[in-house]
Computed example of a mutant assay.
Amino acid sequence: MTDIQLNMDGEPGWEPFDAPALVGASLRFVSGDRTGNRFRMRYFRNASGELVARVWFGPETEGPPGHAHGGSIAAVLDEVLGLAAWAAGYPIVVGNLNIHFRHLLPLQTVVQVDSEVVAAAGRKISVRGRIVLGDRIFAEADCLCITLPEEQRRQLG
């Protein structure tokens, strides 16, 4: 087993989460290729039931030399935070994603994406997340999600 595979494992008490089974093949853009050189991702529910992802940023995500492109970080946060809302029972689309980049993220590093659904009011769902490795925060995000109207939900199912 490679170091990447070992680092992609969850923590004790985490349950693997089958993200594609929840939303279908629409997860192709970021997490669809589990063996490629762009992203490799695994999803879990932690002991509190929140969605957590382990993500490897490969060489094809490069922006600044040796580091992940901000757009690749944004794509990961978009997928994970949107999926966190779906996993909490809210079929949504992302309406607004605000990202605060804190540190450059070195390529070929496995990081953790934590998520938390913080509020639900009408069709608006607020989700927060961050990309971390130990105590180092690479990016934090606030996401405003909008639940899909019933007609669009029927088209998905």
Rank of each mutant, 00 (worst) to 15 (best):
V111P: 04
A119F: 02
V117W: 06
N98R: 12
L105Y: 11
Q108T: 10
H103G: 03
L97W: 06
D114R: 14
S126M: 02
I125V: 09
E116I: 01
H103W: 04
V118K: 09
V94L: 13
N98Q: 11
V94A: 14
Y90S: 04
S115P: 05
T109S: 14
V93Y: 10
V113S: 03
V94G: 08
S115K: 01
H103Y: 10
L105M: 08
P106W: 08
K124D: 05
A88P: 00
P106Y: 13
A120V: 10
H100I: 15
G89C: 06
F101R: 06
A88L: 06
Q108Y: 01
N96I: 10
G89K: 04
A120G: 07
V110W: 05
L97I: 00
P106S: 13
G122N: 07
V118W: 04
A121R: 15
V113L: 07
S115Y: 01
F101A: 06
Q112D: 10
V93W: 02
P91F: 06
S126F: 00
G95L: 13
K124A: 06
D114H: 15
F101M: 03
R102W: 07
E116W: 01
G89R: 02
S115A: 12
A87P: 03
N98I: 08
N96R: 14
H103I: 11
L105R: 09
R123E: 05
V93G: 13
S115G: 08
I125L: 06
V94Q: 04
P106T: 13
K124P: 08
V94I: 15
Q112K: 06
V93M: 14
K124I: 00
I99H: 02
V117T: 04
W86P: 01
Q112N: 06
W86V: 09
Q112A: 09
V113M: 03
P91C: 03
G89I: 09
L107R: 11
R102E: 15
H100L: 15
I99S: 05
R102M: 14
Q108C: 11
G122M: 02
R102Y: 10
L104E: 08
Q112S: 10
A87Y: 04
V93H: 06
I92R: 05
